Computed example of a mutant assay.
Amino acid sequence: MISKRLERLRRMMSCLDHQDKIHIKELVRLLEVSEMTVRRDLNSDYASNFGIESYGGYVRKETNKNILNVEASSSMEESTKLISELIFSEDVVFFDSGKYNGQLIDMINQDVSFTGVTTSLNTFMFLKSKPNCKPVLLGGSYDDLNDVFISHNNDILKSMVYSKSFLTPNGLHDEFGATVETEYCASVAKSVLSRTIEKYLVCSNESLDTVSKFSVCEVGVFNYFISFENTSNPVVSQGGGTL
């Protein structure tokens, strides 16, 4: 299960905050799982997101990657600073209708001049509140159930190139990847991802190990993960990034 695996990897990372390395057998004891489970966790794609690696019978922090990461114990001020530094002047950024977009947008530095693009009315209003943001609302008829404007003939959506995109799938699963509730939202997400330089996946507890109706992509497509398991203190970690 993804949620349990992420929790074990987070606990491993916490152990390594106090020592350079830890033996796998010690992790087996601390996590109360089998050695095979620990090794599967360490060999999963998610291990690199936390910046840890195994060598011999030990586990240590990776030494060859610059992992962007904020620990769950970090202050809200540190998290806000980290997220605010993700958006630069002249960036063109896509946000979907995810429920954490207001919090993310609020964290963007007020002085940064960027273009914010969305199909969501709620997200548009958050973007509109930023003094140096040029908000762009794409769409046609309004779907109030999913908070998106639907246009099946939107050339702008197909031609725009995004510096960054923030997508919040309804479901995240090892086998089925990122999934959403509607076919239209899936098509928008696919189109945006195909034209995005840096891809951010925004996830929460309720999306983990869940499968929705329509597939978007494999989880490894995203460059970065923003976890809202603790809604007042998001965690950002580095991911794969191949589409």
Results as ranks from 00 to 15, higher is better:
1 M>V: 13
2 I>T: 02
3 S>W: 00
6 L>V: 07
6 L>M: 00
6 L>D: 08
8 R>M: 01
8 R>F: 03
12 M>S: 04
13 M>N: 09
14 S>K: 12
19 Q>G: 02
19 Q>P: 10
24 I>E: 01
25 K>T: 02
27 L>T: 01
28 V>P: 05
33 V>M: 08
39 R>K: 13
40 R>F: 07
44 S>N: 09
44 S>E: 08
44 S>R: 11
46 Y>T: 08
46 Y>M: 14
46 Y>E: 14
53 E>A: 13
55 Y>I: 11
56 G>Y: 03
63 T>P: 00
63 T>M: 07
66 N>P: 04
70 V>D: 03
70 V>T: 15
71 E>M: 12
74 S>H: 09
75 S>N: 11
76 M>F: 14
76 M>K: 15
79 S>L: 00
80 T>G: 01
80 T>M: 10
87 I>H: 12
88 F>G: 04
89 S>A: 05
94 F>C: 03
97 S>T: 10
97 S>C: 13
99 K>G: 08
104 L>F: 05
105 I>D: 00
105 I>E: 06
108 I>F: 14
112 V>Q: 04
117 V>A: 07
118 T>A: 11
119 T>M: 12
125 M>H: 13
130 K>E: 05
132 N>H: 11
135 P>D: 10
138 L>S: 06
142 Y>P: 15
154 N>F: 07
155 D>A: 13
159 S>V: 15
164 K>D: 03
175 E>D: 09
176 F>W: 01
179 T>W: 03
183 E>W: 06
189 A>T: 09
191 S>I: 00
195 R>A: 06
195 R>Y: 05
200 Y>C: 05
205 N>V: 13
206 E>K: 14
211 V>F: 03
212 S>K: 11
220 G>W: 07
223 N>W: 01
228 F>Q: 13
229 E>M: 12
232 S>N: 15
232 S>V: 05
233 N>W: 07
